[in-house]
Each structure stands twice: as C-alpha cells, then as structure tokens.
Design a protein around this nucleic acid. Structure first.
Lengths: 342, 342
DNA sequence: CTGAAAGCGCTTACAG
DNA sequence: CTGAAAGCGCTTACAG
C-alpha cells in the first residue's frame, strides 16, 4: 500500500508538502499541488487515518451512544446523525448500549471505550446518571444530547412536558376525564428523561382540568415497544376499568395499547381512546392519534452542531423542536354511558 | 493523559513488558504482571487504539455497510452485529449508504473509505454490483454479507426463492389464482438480491399451480416502506382489479398494501388477501400473515463468523436461515364470486 | 513556498 | 522473562 513517503519520492517533494497539498492547506505552490495530487492519484494513495490521528490528535470520528437502533426514534436520529457526519467527512462509531435482548439494568457507560477514539460524543435517547454525564464530560471532547439531556448540556429535543400536556388536553377536550398513562422506566427515570417529562405533562393537564388522577392510572414499567405497551395496558385496563382513554409515552407503546384493547374486546376509540407520541409511520395502521416530532432532523442538526464545537465554535444553544398534534381515528368522545358524571 | 511510558516508568519495567502484561501475552512473570496492572489502573491508563493500530496493523474495528438502519431488517441485523462485535472487543464503524432521504440511484461504494480503517467488512442488505464487490475484496480484509450476497462470498441469509414460494403457495392453497406481487427495485436488482429471489419464488409457485401470471401482476418500483407499498398497491389494484391476493416482498410493503386496500374500500382478507416477508412485530397491528425470519441472529452470527476470519480461521460456510409461515388474519379464501372459475 | 526532523504512542522482532 | 530499539505513517512547529 502506497505511503506518504512513496508519494513524496515520486513527486520529488517532502512528505510535509504532500501532507499540505493533500489537505488543501495554504503555502503550497499551485503547480506543486497539482503534481502531488496527480502522483497520489496515480499511486492510489489513501492516507492512514490512524497515523494522522496519532500525529494530530484529531480522529475525525464521532461516537454515537444509544440504547439501540431498533426503536423508531433512535433509528431515525442515528440515521440523521450518520448522514450529517458522513457528509462532513466524519466517521461514526456506533455504541448500542443496553441490548434490547438482555434484561436487567444497563451497565453504566464506560467513558474509556471512547477515550482517544472520538472528537465528539453524541448521546441519543440515553438517560444518563449524573455520574455518567460527568465521566463523559471528563473525556474532554464536545458532547451533545438528542432526545433527552441534562441542563447545562447542549440538547436537541422536543418539549416533553408540552407534548404530554398536548396529548392529554386533546383527550380532555373530547370529554374524557379518566385518562390513564402507559410509560416505561427501565432506564433511570431522571428528571430530564422524555418519559418523565411526558408523564409530568399528563399530570399537569389533568390537574388543570380539575381531574385528580390517582397514581393507579399509570403503569410505568413498560418496555418501550409494542409488546411492552400491550402487556402494560393489559395490567392497567384490568385494574382500572373506569379509564376511557390512555395516553402512551410513545407510538410504539400506544400501538401496543391498541392491541391490548382489542384483546380485551374493547373498541378503539368507542370504548377506549388512545394517543401516542412520535409520529411513527406505522401509526396509520391503527389510525393512531399522536403528537409527532421530526427525529431525523434532531439527529442531523445535533451532529452538525457537535461538529461545530469540534472545530472550535462555541457551544450552540440547545434546540427545542416543534411537535404537532395529528388527529386520526384512535380518539373520540367517550361513549355517553362512560363519560364524565355531572 | 497517561501513556505507556508513564506506566513503564512507574512500574519500573520497559514499555514492552507493559504492553505484554496488559494484553495478557505470555512471557510475563506473574508478579510483574500484577504490578503493571495495578500501576496502570492507578494511573487510569487507557491505551491509544490508534497507536496500537499503527504499530500492529490491526484496527479491532469492523465496517458495517448498509443502505440505512430505519428499515426493520437492517436495524435488527445491525443491532445483532453490533452486540456480537462489541462483546468481542471490536468497534463498529457504521456506513449508512444510500440515504432514505435522497432520491436517485445510490452512488457506488467507495472502498477507500474503509481502507486501513477496518479489519473486516460486513455488508448488510446492500445489493452490490460485481465491480463493487471486487473493490471490497481488493481491500484485503475479510468480507461477509447479510441478507444478500454474491455466490463465492460468505453470506448469511434466508432462501428468498423458497420464502417467496412459501408465501405464494399459501395463497394458492387458499384457492387464489390471481396473485399479484409488490416489490422494490431501487437498488440494482441483481440476481442475488432478496427482491429478485422472492419474485422468482412467486413466479415459480404460480407456474407450478398452472397459473400464468402476466407481468402486469407485478409492481416492482416501490420504496421498501409503508408509503412505498401503499403507492405501489394503488397502481397495481387500479390496473388489475381481478387480483384477489397480493404477495409483498417485505412486511413493510405488505402493510402499505393493506392501507391501499382500505383506501380503496377493499376489505382484507375478504376482498384481498395480503402476505409479506419478515415477521415485523408491527405486522400484528393489521393481522398480517407473513413468512418470518430472525434478522437479529443473522447479524449476530455473521459478525461472529467474520471475526473468526479476521483472527485467521478459514472462511465459514455460508448459512441459510429458516423461515416460518405465520398465518394471521390478512389471508383467507377468495370470496366465492371472485375465486377461480371452473 | 518548502524541507528536515521530532514526535504522536504503541507493537514486535531480536538479543540476552 | 525482559529490555533496547526500530518502525508503523502521518502532522507540525521551526528554520530557511
């Protein structure tokens, strides 16, 4: 494999000049640059990224930490980040922590796997403990969060409290009063996790409407997928048959709620209204009403912002993305005999 | 940041000994090893992977090439591969080629992005041109394919012809004769792409049953997602109202077909039976009959096999994974007035 | 605008 | 079992 020495020799210049010419640095005479470029092409020279990293300290690589990519939101975000990063000449090192196939709590994030390996770190939808955040900060490279993030860190996300309130107010506006909630909490449910925010939005909207939703209207230990939502909804609906509506913390959970309702012989929306969050394209399969967000853009923009920090720009502001209530067929007024008492 | 020199000095040994002790190589006295280990821990020493790569030529990194991770099959495979690789101490460099957000043909794979960067390459569901395959082979590192792959290369996949035939025979067995097909062909539809195999299976099953399905029973330019399947099915059903069943090349396409049927006022399965391939968990939302496969395992096993090649084992055999017909509610016998004429 | 040379932080024959 | 030293392939002050 041709090395920079081969190119230098063939072009009759020093390796320093080859290095400058190839990286488009100033201080190379146009004619020299052209010669170097053509010799390099001729020899099929491809610089060794590892040698460049060792010499410069820069890796041109970003670490993407995520619980997994099989969930819709994570997949979209990682996809968006990957395209932004690739487009700007950066590699992406994927760390899918917390296997969807293993049970038990996720082991703490070990920052050493990233040490000396990345120029920046993007944390996607992984609610981290404070200690984990500081260990990541301790890496000394820029850090950005998508989907959730502690205050003081650059974060790209929607307003989860507002999203939860928007979904719940929609149900209240239709006349529902007994509105349950299905959510997940396998990761530490820190104050800045999406689940915590959406739950808080639900609680506030109920309180505003004068509804005193008891804690038993919530099931909060669901896996964040279809099967998890289904199982959780079964427990919730069995325990609280008075519920006429359920707000689920994600569309995947919400679709599971719809399946559980069907399992139990309940019609959606006649017997049970269901709302989710995400705008998952499959929501349409069950006419799911949802609060939608643009996950791809969050990943894309976060990656671009992170690279800005890598090249020395000051940290950008955190960004809050818009959400939109998409009303489909999974929500309606409660049946007359199940509506609010007067 | 502590370097190997710091550790050597503090432990009173040479860097060679530190290197050996830390990597568990032989020829280190137990007492020395213990001392080195404890000094390294004390100093918080983390070896530089780039220096190690430069010195050894090994990267402990695998490149994963895929069209994107948002599609169910790719997401599962990449997830499976990531966990196997991570578990064996390898990093994964993700290359999501062919953005789902851009149109037009995907640019050819440039092997140079991988040169000197990976110890092995895993190609996930990316039908490559012969020239692209040879350029990847030319990298000189082990290569494996998941989901599709040219003969002569190590491939982990299902038997797509058999899968297509299985789905189609199920429909024929129910009494259908006019069985359409929805598939995609944005990538070069080489002979070893999944789409080509499934289509061939469909064709053969029809031929076996003595049905001479005209080319107009196929729409083959769908995007491989819900919206793509829906749009394709609209065109197919408008042009060929005599169809009583559709075999779609993936569950995501099939779910789109179900939506299109609903759009057109057709009941599934009474007016139209629909079968897909994958075993997507969301298929249950519409009671989708499908030919299921285990994508996570394909990714996992392919990664393990690839690492075997990396450490010098001879190339494993290609593996064909089982599929299973899962009958749900989207298929039934055709209505009497639409069944086969006698 | 260009080059000689040091240095990035490891691994690996080789010698002992 | 251990160490001295070369070498992996670049980048980057520094000097000219």
């Amino acid at each position: 494999m041709a090395s920079i020495d081969d190119v230098a020799r063939a072009a009759g210049v020093s390796t320093a000049t080859v290095s400058r010419a190839l990286r488009n640095l100033p201080n190379v005479q146009p004619a020299t640059r052209v010669r170097v470029l053509s010799v390099a092409a001729e020899l099929g020279y491809v610089p060794s990224p590892h040698a460049a990293t060792l010499a410069s300290g820069r890796t041109r690589t970003v670490g993407v930490l995520t619980p997994g990519i099989a969930r819709w939101f994570f997949g979209e975000v990682v996809d968006g980040a990957e395209h932004a990063l690739r487009g700007l000449g950066f590699d992406v090192l994927l760390y899918a922590l917390g296997s969807p196939r293993t049970d038990g709590p996720r082991p703490p994030v070990d920052p050493n796997v990233l040490r000396r390996r990345v120029d920046g770190t993007l944390v996607v939808g992984l609610p981290l403990e404070a200690a984990e955040v500081s260990s990541l900060v301790g890496l000394g490279v820029p850090l950005a969060f998508v989907g959730s993030g502690p205050s003081g860190q650059v974060t790209h996300r929607i307003d989860d409290v507002a999203a939860g309130a928007l979904a719940t107010r929609h149900l209240l506006g239709l006349g529902h009063r007994a509105v349950g909630h299905v959510t997940g909490a396998r990761d530490p449910l820190s104050v800045w996790s999406p689940a915590a925010g959406r739950r808080e939005g639900w609680r506030r909207a109920l309180a505003e409407a004068g509804v005193d939703g008891p804690p038993t209207w919530v099931v909060d230990d669901a896996e964040f997928d279809l099967a998890g939502g289904r199982a959780a909804a079964h427990r919730l609906l069995a325990a609280r048959p008075e519920l006429t509506a359920v707000f689920a913390a994600s569309d995947e959970l919400a679709m599971g709620v719809v399946l559980a309702a069907r399992d139990r012989g309940l019609r959606v929306p006649d017997d049970l209204s269901v709302v989710g969050v995400d705008g998952h394209p499959h929501g349409e399969l069950v006419g799911l009403t949802t609060v939608s967000q643009d996950a791809f853009s969050q990943g894309h923009d976060a990656a671009v912002g992170l690279l800005g920090m890598v090249v020395g720009e000051r940290a950008p502001e955190s960004v809050t993305y818009p959400t939109r209530l998409v009303v489909r067929e999974s929500t309606s007024a409660p049946r007359a005999d199940r509506g609010p008492r007067r």
